[in-house]
Design a binder for these strands. Structure first.
Lengths: 233, 233
DNA sequence: CCGACTTTGTGCAGGTGTTCACAAGCGTCT
DNA sequence: AGACGCTTGTGAACACCTGCACAAAGTCGG
């Protein structure tokens, strides 16, 4: 799939231990499902159980996991602890990833307060906003910093992942500054395609697009189902 | 691809005027890029210009648009106004889509205040939260309603799109109530795969997963690029 | 009216992702 | 030890998506 990656460091065929993009995109779901089993005290799962919990086909799950290595036991299944560790290692969750969020509007606030990041190795290093009126405000224990501090923050904390939650008009400029400062991965919530140099990854999350895609299917359902009553011609 | 759709009303081959999922997922980007051209007074665009603005390949753009019909003029390009209308009609943006948001936490707040919805035909019909302490609070001019009002809201306003922004533990229950009340499209922000009956569409947006995917590639870059200095063996 | 130029729409080849079906392998029970 | 049942890992077929390259079809200038 890779619906958003606009630029990649490695060429397709030259990936060191080829894990396909589609598989990588599903690993977080497997990891999350596995932690669910762990919390319930389950020590072993079959591909069928794990696939159901993750919402995928069991054959696809096995093929995905086989790309990481042969971590299962035939006739038994997968050891929950061990598989969690392997996926976490593959995803880099065993490292500490400092993240800077730029644009502390409604969405930036929500992201700053979102607990799902911290629990997976992502540490919010700083919040940055261009509006000087926001500078000094504290969100989730972090003080909002002026945009001028961006370069210093990235350098001092070794930030390599940036989150762009600015209005569309400001997104490309912020992205350029992030990249210039040394960020090599960008998560973009602004509804514009960001231009980045080779070697920098961009993933895009577009809330309005998601609703529009749902609306498309919804419309199809409505026009395709005029059967509730008469008027059948 | 179809990374999120878990259940679809129509079977693959039986779509009435087959527009592929991959194409549908890109139509919102085209629509947005076109409105940008419109705002700047551009009346005609070539596939190359539009593709660049939308961040895709021009051949892919032409192939996508050809699925809607032959709306271009060879030697000239596409009429901006006309193409905007055609895409909007195809996506159902010419209709009014009432949406209910369940779960008014950080993310729910941000969604309720997000301007990108209203400008594309999506009207937030109601905000709902299970926490009675929130009921009565006003967000973006809308009063938060108790979860008990869900069924009545869906029925009265003809809501067919629901947004789940609850904690993971509550998501499936909320989804079940939405579907039972008549909602047939769900946008899920909770980090669990929702189970829905046939005919109901689900799209999932998982913020933590996106960061994890970026971390994977980031880790690959770091381990694959030990070339800054010596130690070349 | 004709020829040159521009741009769309598409046939085709290559690649990626998905699914089925089954052999290989592991544990267990007798 | 050997047979049996269960589950993984994977070969192969299929479907889908992407991108190239070009014919078809329009505009514009003379």
């Amino acid at each position: 799939m890779s619906p958003v990656s606009s630029s990649r460091a490695e060429r397709k065929g030259a990936r060191q231990r080829g894990i396909s993009d589609a598989t990588v995109a599903r690993l977080p779901a497997y990891h999350r499902a596995l932690t669910g089993f762990l919390d319930r005290g389950v020590t072993t799962v079959s591909s069928e159980e794990l696939a159901t919990a993750a919402g995928v086909n069991s054959a696809k799950l096995r093929k995905d996991l086989s790309q990481l290595g042969s971590y299962g036991t035939r006739g038994v299944g997968y050891d929950v602890d061990y598989l969690i560790y392997q996926i976490a290692r593959e995803l880099g969750l065993t490292q500490d990833w400092p993240v800077v969020i730029v644009g502390i509007g409604n969405l930036g606030h929500a992201l700053a307060n979102y607990g799902g990041f911290a629990s997976r190795g992502f540490r919010i290093a700083a919040l940055v906003d261009a509006n000087p009126g926001l500078a000094g405000e504290t969100v989730n224990g972090l003080e909002v910093q002026p945009i001028g501090a961006l370069e210093r923050i990235v350098a001092d904390d070794g930030v390599c992942i940036g989150v762009v939650a600015t209005p569309a008009a400001a997104a490309q400029g912020v992205c350029d500054r992030l990249v210039a400062a040394g960020v090599t991965s960008v998560l973009n919530f602004a509804p514009v395609p960001l231009q980045v140099p080779p070697g920098v990854d961009v993933r895009k999350v577009d809330l309005a697009s998601e609703l529009q895609i749902l609306a498309f299917h919804e419309q199809r359902k409505q026009t395709a189902t005029p059967q509730p009553k008469g008027l059948a011609g």
